Amino acid sequence: MLISADLEGVSGIVHTTETNPGGYDYERGRELMTAEVNAAVAGVFDAEPGAAVVVADAHGPFRNLLPERLDRRVRLVRGKPRPLGMMAGLHEAGDAVLFVGYHARAGTGPAVLAHTSSDALLDVRLDGRPMGEIGLNAVLAGAVGAPVVLLSGDDAACAELAELVPDALTVPVKRALGQAAAETLHPDEARERLRAGAAEAVGRRERVPALVLPGPVRLEVDLYGPYTVDLATLVPGVERAAGGRTVAFTAADVTEAYRLVQLLVQLAQVKPG
């Protein structure tokens, strides 16, 4: 099993000071994230004691989870850059994927800390369909035949996965009131529900189809910065599309499209010389 763990969708988290290193409450955010991952891990082992579980630290710097506090039965993937980004470990992870602490895509609202990979990416579309991190990661899992069986996060994130994978199980741990406000469960209650949900999701994973998007696929990305558009068009195959801030690329498959999204996030950090 692969558990891909983000931070914005964790119970009690509502603000960037709780999710960004250096923020006054980031250390508490890391503890809450680690505890929710452990709850999901416990649920997996409740359902399948012999499972092999890989946890991908998938937020920001990919160095948020506290290794010494993680369940010792898992293997942890941390640090960046790395192949497959938020889904690192996918090829070794077996037959199911769980998303813990996920958030809704850019442009969704009300949704807590909604964005897609970076604030520099205003919208991402695959074959014309808007895709946030939930969709991009789900189709990447689908490329190796792995279904996404569970997601925890706010109600908007849960609704996003339910639209893509109706048979998946969702665990809403907070109700979004805005970009930086929510009605949230007590962390202990959230962890209990997540443990039970993970056990149920793993037990019924054969009933959840993988989200498969056959190649080739057309990727379109609306970028915040015109300079990033200029840099992106230096990548072979990437073209400037209508609107001035949109780039387009025809990828052989979703894995190639995913890697270009990763590259665009990095290019967005480059400033004019």
Rank of each mutant, 00 (worst) to 15 (best):
D154R: 05
V165Q: 12
L164Y: 10
A146W: 00
A143N: 09
A156I: 03
A159G: 12
L161F: 14
V149W: 12
A162L: 15
V171I: 08
A146I: 07
T170R: 04
C158T: 05
A159F: 08
D154T: 14
V171N: 00
N137Q: 09
E163F: 06
G142S: 14
L150A: 01
A143S: 15
A168W: 07
G142T: 04
A162T: 14
G142K: 05
V148C: 10
T170V: 15
A168E: 07
V165A: 09
V171Y: 00
L151W: 03
A168D: 04
G145E: 09
V139S: 04
P166A: 14
D167P: 08
A138L: 11
L136F: 13
L151K: 01
S152P: 12
S152C: 02
D155M: 06
L151M: 09
A168M: 07
V149I: 12
L140P: 12
L151D: 01
A168N: 10
P166Y: 15
N137V: 04
G142V: 04
L136P: 03
L136H: 07
A138T: 14
V165H: 05
A168I: 11
E160V: 03
L150F: 10
G145K: 05
L164M: 11
C158S: 06
C158E: 04
L169A: 06
G142H: 10
A146H: 03
N137F: 04
G142C: 10
N137K: 11
P166Q: 14
D167V: 09
T170S: 15
A157D: 09
G142N: 09
V149A: 07
G153W: 01
S152R: 00
T170L: 03
A156W: 04
A156T: 02
V165Y: 08
V171K: 00
T170C: 13
G142F: 02
V165F: 07
V149C: 08
V149R: 06
V149M: 09
A159K: 15
V144K: 05
V171T: 03
V171A: 11
V171E: 00
G145N: 09
L161V: 13
G145M: 08
V171Q: 00
N137A: 12
L140F: 12
P166S: 13
D155R: 04
P147S: 14
E160S: 06
V171L: 05
A157C: 07
V144M: 05
